[in-house]
Each structure stands twice: as C-alpha cells, then as structure tokens.
Simulated scan of single mutants.
Amino acid sequence: MKAKKQRVAAYGVCLNDAGEILLARWLGPRGKRWILPGGGLDHGEHPYDAVIREFEEETGFEVEVLRLLGIDSELREEADRDYHALRIMYEVRIVGGELRYEVDGTTDFAQWFPLADVGALERVPSIDTALGLYRKTPPTGILR
C-alpha cells in the first residue's frame, strides 16, 4: 500500500495596473517552473496569514488579501505515494516592500509577466486554475 501525503497551501494572485501578474520561479523536482507566490501552511496557521507570509518570503512585497478566489484540489498518484494537494487561492494587492528574491528557499526569482504571455511560460497548472477562478468568480469557489 502506498503512503498518503496531503499538503495544504495558500497562493496569491497579484495583478498590477499594467495587466501583469507577479510569479515566482519554483525550483521543483522536474526543473524550474513558474508558480504563484505562496506555499504550505505552518501547523496551526490560517491560510489567510500564510499567503501574506509566503508572498513576502518569495517576492519581498507586503500584501493585503482582497478576496478568496477559491480552492484547487488535485489528487495524483506518484511512484511512492498518493499525493493530495489542496491549494487555497486569494487575490492580493501590494501594500509595501520592494521586489527581491528568496534565498535558500523553494523559489529563486520573482517577475512580472503580461497576462497574455503566461500561456507560453513553463508553469505549474495551478496558475491556470487560479486565473480561471479570478476571471470567472464561481460562487462555489471551484472550477469544474
């Protein structure tokens, strides 16, 4: 029987007035890919607080949460385990700080991209889910 692993994380969708989205470059097991700033919750931490903390760690920006966009749930079988990722997506706005890069973390770079260019990036699928939630605002908080 395979081990079971569940990870709960919070991510922020941050768009600027120029129609650009802020993404972080993730140092994943299959190479570098773009991801939304955010990450795993610490034990006992509320997702609202986690997205603020993680966003600052990965980008240098202080943010405020504007709204809950929804939740992405992905179950996948891996060679050694069944993995369940639960991603809580928020819309956030920058209220302070300066762009900088995370050191010794899971990301190494942060950059603004025009929304029209996101489709051409090496990215994790949850970016597309988050943008769908942002654009459609489903009342259930999920895309089907």
Score class of each variant (00 low, 15 high):
Ala10Pro: 07
Ala10Gly: 11
Gly12Ile: 01
Asn16Thr: 08
Gly19Met: 05
Gly19Trp: 05
Leu22Thr: 06
Leu23Met: 04
Arg25Phe: 02
Gly28Arg: 03
Pro29Asn: 07
Pro29Thr: 05
Pro29Phe: 07
Gly31Asp: 07
Arg33Met: 14
Ile35Asn: 13
Pro37Phe: 07
Gly38Arg: 03
Gly38Asp: 04
Gly38Lys: 02
Gly39Phe: 02
Gly40Phe: 03
His43Val: 11
Gly44Tyr: 05
Glu45Ile: 08
His46Lys: 13
Pro47Lys: 06
Tyr48Glu: 08
Asp49Gln: 13
Asp49Cys: 08
Ala50Leu: 11
Val51Glu: 02
Val51Pro: 01
Ile52Thr: 11
Phe55Cys: 02
Glu56Thr: 02
Glu56Ala: 00
Gly60Trp: 10
Gly60Arg: 10
Gly60Tyr: 12
Phe61Trp: 08
Phe61Pro: 03
Phe61Glu: 05
Glu64Gln: 06
Val65Phe: 07
Leu66Tyr: 00
Leu69Trp: 13
Ile71Ala: 14
Asp72Ala: 14
Ser73Phe: 15
Glu77His: 08
Glu78Phe: 09
Glu78Ser: 06
Ala79His: 07
Ala79Pro: 02
Arg81His: 11
Tyr83Thr: 10
Tyr83Ala: 14
Tyr83Glu: 15
His84Arg: 09
His84Val: 09
Ala85Leu: 01
Ala85Gly: 04
Leu86Tyr: 12
Arg87Met: 14
Arg87Val: 09
Ile88Thr: 10
Ile88Asn: 07
Tyr90Asp: 03
Tyr90Pro: 05
Tyr90Gly: 05
Val92Trp: 13
Val95Ile: 15
Val95Gln: 10
Glu98Asn: 08
Glu98Ala: 10
Leu99Ala: 14
Arg100Phe: 02
Arg100Glu: 07
Tyr101Cys: 10
Tyr101Ile: 07
Asp104Tyr: 09
Thr107Pro: 05
Thr107Val: 12
Asp108Leu: 00
Asp108Trp: 00
Ala110Asn: 08
Gln111Lys: 15
Trp112Pro: 11
Trp112Lys: 12
Trp112Cys: 12
Trp112Ala: 12
Phe113Cys: 01
Pro114Val: 10
Leu115Ser: 10
Ala116Arg: 15
Asp117Ile: 11
Asp117Ala: 15
Asp117Leu: 15
Val118Asn: 08
Ala120Tyr: 13
Leu121Gln: 07
Arg123Phe: 04
Val124His: 14
Ser126Thr: 13
Leu131Cys: 01
Leu133Asn: 09
Tyr134His: 13
Tyr134Ile: 09
Arg135Pro: 00
Arg135Ile: 00
Arg135Met: 00
Thr137Tyr: 06
Pro139Gln: 04
Thr140His: 03
